[in-house]
Structures are given as structure tokens and as C-alpha cells.
Design a protein around this nucleic acid. Structure first.
Lengths: 140, 140
DNA sequence: CTACATCCTCTAGCGACTAGAGGTGCAAGG
DNA sequence: CCTTGCACCTCTAGTCGCTAGAGGATGTAG
């Protein structure tokens, strides 16, 4: 079994070196064995775990949610109700964010379109920001 | 001219009290005059500025960008090219985020739909996360 | 005059990293 | 064998945009 250095693990998983050490620190990744010179030595399973974590992070899952998902992954006999719940919650969140961003896009487009590249006092960018009543973006 | 307390300013602007003090600390908002008892006393113009800041933050502008926008707002004779550039950059960013989130939504929907509420080893949520090759979500 | 809300300053914490200092390990070339 | 130079180690502190809490002063209503 060839030893995988942290740099190699980083290249293979797409997770940056300091981030791997950080994940170890917060207990997302168990501490690997060390070489004689105290250097971390990973195994293929660790790479899979890192890929799993990276992918979950890219999907916007929080570290705490990933912790739960990892526990589920380690025990395949469990019910996947928790995993399902986490994914569903995340889906609702994503849908909400898409809605906000779409509304926001409309506003930004109006701002940019309304800017005649003249002076600031004719610029809709500033105007829209200053006058909240003009836009559809309401709160509480 | 009646004095506006920080609490009143907060209510009128929709910016929380500690956040107002924070904005003063980082120089987004100039320090207001104080009452005899050392309490901040705001004027209507400060409320407008706070509303401007809040709205810009809601649109996702970073504090540094807002700083620039505020400078522009204070000098209406300037060209609005900078404001336009900031808004355009923000628009591109928002469009990019919408695209990622849409891709993500598709993946999450597949995960949730594929989960038969059985055991973890049949669960697509875990599976999709573990096997990056299965999804359309590619990076660098 | 007393109760109580609101204000003050200050420091520390959040999430999820990222950057840098200061030192050690290791593989390859001369 | 020795040096070069990169990759590794630990540790602390910084990032962003706040938020929370301690511990104390002020302002207002009854």
C-alpha cells in the first residue's frame, strides 16, 4: 500500500491542503496515520471521504449537516430518513435563494439599464439604492 | 430638530442597533453627535444613509462596494461609471449564482426523488454525494 | 424615587476557511 | 555526502459581516 501525502490527497480530492487539516481539526475527517517524520499518510478511503465532503460543501450543505451525512454513510443499515430530511431542507433553502436572486437580478438589470453613463444624479443605480420604496424588495 | 436615538434610528432604517454601531466603527457611517449623557443622536440624513446601506446589503453588495457607492452618492457631479461598473459586476455574480443554484436544485431533486425511505445503502442522497462522477456538477 | 428600558464600551464568538511565521522532512542533482 | 528546494509540520491570527454578552451609565414613566 503506497502512502498518500496530504498534497497528493489534495490533488486527488480537490480539497486544499490547509482545508484538509482544518477538517481533521474539527473532526470531520479522522486523523490519519503518520510517517516516521510525522507526516500525514492517507488511504484511498480518506480520499473518498474528502470527495464526499467537498461535493456536499459545493451543494451548500453545512459542516454540521455533513457530519450527520457521514455518520449515515458509515452505517448503511440505518434508515435514510435523516439524509432525506437534510436534502429536503436543503432543497427548500435552495429554491428560496433562487427566488430571491431572481428578484434581485430584475432590480440590478433595471439599475444597469437605467444608467445613462452620465452624472450620478441621473443614475438609477444610486437612486434605487437610496429610495427603497421604488423597488419590489420588501422585508419583514 | 428632535434628536433620534440609536434605537429609533434602528426602527426607522431597519438596521439593528449593534449593526449601526458596527457600521460607524468600520467607517461606513460617520460618527453622529452625542447627547450630554454620551448617547448617539442621529439626524434624518443618517437614516437615509442607513436605508441606502441596508438596501445595498440586501442586494448583496459588499461593504467595500457600498463605501464606493456612498462616495458617489455624496458627489452627484461625478460620472456614474463606477456605480455602473459595480452594479454590472454584481449582476454577473448574481447570474452566475442563479445558474449554480439551478444545477444544484436539479441534483437535490433527483436525490430526494430517488430516496425510497429505505436503508441508507439504497439511498441516492448518500450515493450522489459519494460519487461525484454521477452528477453534472463539475469544477475547475 | 425607584424601576426598567435603553444606552454605552469592550471583548469574544460565529462559520468556514485562509494566510503567514518559523521550523522539519524528504527526494533528487551535483 | 551534501545541498537545494519543495512539501510538510504546528501554531496563531486574520478574513467578512455581523452577533452576543458582560458590566456599567443614562433616560423616562409612574
Amino acid at each position: 500500500m503506497k502512502k498518500i501525502t496530504i498534497g497528493e490527497a489534495s490533488r486527488q480530492s480537490g480539497v486544499k491542503v490547509p482545508t484538509i487539516r482544518y477538517y481533521e481539526g474539527i473532526g470531520l475527517l479522522s486523523a490519519p496515520s503518520r510517517s516516521e517524520g510525522n507526516q500525514r499518510s492517507y488511504e484511498p478511503a480518506d480520499i473518498s471521504r474528502l470527495v464526499f465532503i467537498r461535493h456536499a460543501r459545493e451543494l451548500g450543505f453545512e459542516v454540521d449537516a455533513i457530519r450527520t451525512l457521514l455518520v449515515l454513510q458509515d452505517d448503511p443499515n440505518q434508515s435514510c430518513a435523516s439524509a432525506d430530511a437534510i436534502a429536503k431542507a436543503r432543497l427548500i433553502d435552495v429554491e428560496q435563494r433562487i427566488r430571491s436572486l431572481m428578484a434581485l437580478k430584475v432590480e440590478l438589470e433595471a439599475m444597469v439599464a437605467g444608467c445613462g453613463h452620465g452624472r450620478v444624479d441621473q443614475c438609477r443605480v444610486i437612486e434605487v439604492l437610496a429610495d427603497h420604496g421604488q423597488c419590489a424588495h420588501n422585508h419583514h
